[in-house]
Amino acid sequence: MVQIGFITNCLSLPLSDKIKLAANLGFNTLEVACWPVGDPKQCDINADSYDDDTLTEISNLLRHQHITISSLAYYENNLSTELQVRNMHIRHLKNVIRLAHKLDVPYVGTYIGKNSMISLEDNFVLAENIFQPILEYADALGVTILIENCPMPTWNPEGYPATITYSPELFCRLFTSFPTHRLGLNFDPSHLYWMGIDYLSVAARFADRIHSVHIKDVTTINNEPNRYGLYGKKINKNNPFDFGYYQATLPGYGDIDWLQLLHVLRNNGFTGPLQVEYKNSNGFGSIADPKRGLAISRQYLSEIQKVEALL
């Protein structure tokens, strides 16, 4: 069975406590948040400044708790319109890659992003110029970059896609630009589902590029897809995530067929990990305690894996 973990920035705890909690809940891997110090998306390990003693302490704790780190997370717009911001993101991403190498972590998760001031084709040209040296650096250090396929509508004031890697068409364009094995997908089927794309066929088609899966379900219950449509709610939004036609939820409480997805992935050589991207909703209300939500998610995924193994 593949490893099951979670993205650590759902918890407001020191990394050492997150590792211990993961072990207590039955997880065996983590995707560790590595935004810069002070970023609200959390910095569990400071990729910009560390020493050998710090890394040894982390490694020893992981070993003692029988937990691995399968990926370091830094999801930002690496094609930002603002050059200063873009350069900051790129610089930090390279530091996260170096940290992954130091900790023997195989993957770093990020976005390509999008420059909203230029055409799609020019965005891919810009991506080639930016990511080719990044991928060469990652390759030299034995690290693989994983692109998450979220369109990031919250980055756009009108709620439109703000990345250039959110659909199978764009995956093909991405991997044409970067055929290297050091670039893959951190596959999130929920985004494909709410866009009306058959995530099972996509999983089969791009199986050789899928190295990790983000586990987050979606539901249309208590939403109005026929009122708001694919591009979502535009008027009187309660918050940036008030899309109106779907909401994120825990695995098993939404519309994703996880049993079939895991079956398709396993039949196509997927070896994991599965990383829970915790959201504080069960589709019908709220689970404000992330520890409980993580426990429910791990139990569900463990049971699904057992059933899938019998297929």
Rank of each mutant, 00 (worst) to 15 (best):
E158S: 11
N87F: 11
A23H: 11
I210T: 07
P189I: 07
A73I: 06
L135D: 12
V307D: 03
Q260H: 07
S177C: 13
R98I: 06
R266I: 06
L200W: 05
C172L: 05
G244I: 00
Q42N: 05
E148Q: 11
L146Q: 10
R292P: 01
L183H: 02
K291M: 12
I210C: 12
M195A: 12
A22W: 11
N236C: 11
G269S: 02
Y137T: 03
E277K: 00
P290S: 15
Q84Y: 09
I112G: 12
G159Y: 01
N156G: 04
E224P: 02
L294A: 06
Q305N: 05
Q260P: 10
L83W: 01
N77P: 03
G5D: 15
L13M: 12
P225M: 05
K306S: 12
H263Q: 13
R98H: 13
L30Y: 04
P106N: 10
A47S: 12
V264P: 03
E57C: 05
I58Q: 01
E76N: 07
N46T: 07
I58H: 02
Q65A: 08
D257P: 00
L62S: 04
P157D: 14
T54I: 06
L61V: 08
T81E: 11
A288K: 12
S177L: 06
L301G: 07
A288G: 13
P225N: 04
M152S: 14
Y74K: 00
A204R: 13
K41R: 12
D289I: 00
G113D: 15
Q247E: 09
V37A: 09
E303H: 05
H181N: 10
A248V: 00
K291N: 06
L15S: 03
S49D: 09
A73V: 08
Y111T: 01
E148L: 14
Q247L: 00
L11Y: 04
V108M: 09
Y50L: 03
R209E: 11
G142Y: 00
G254Y: 10
Y111A: 00
G184V: 11
L200G: 11
Y107T: 04
Y199H: 14
F27I: 08
K237M: 08
A23T: 03
C43G: 01
Y107D: 06
T219L: 06
V32I: 12
L135I: 05
F241W: 15
K279F: 09
Y245E: 01
L99G: 00
N60D: 15
E169V: 08
Y231N: 15
N268R: 13
V85M: 04
T54L: 12
L135F: 13
T56D: 13
K234E: 11
L311T: 06
D53F: 02
P273K: 08
L21C: 14
S281V: 07
K18L: 15
I256H: 10
I287H: 05
L126C: 02
D51L: 00
Y278K: 02
D52R: 03
V125L: 15
L310P: 08
S116T: 07
I145E: 15
G293I: 02
L93F: 13
A100Q: 07
G293V: 01
I4M: 10
V125K: 15
A203Q: 09
Y193V: 01
S59A: 10
L174D: 14
R298E: 04
T163I: 05
G254F: 03
G159Q: 04
P133T: 03
E277P: 10
I147V: 13
S201A: 08
K102L: 08
P133F: 08
M152L: 08
L135V: 03
D51H: 07
G26A: 02
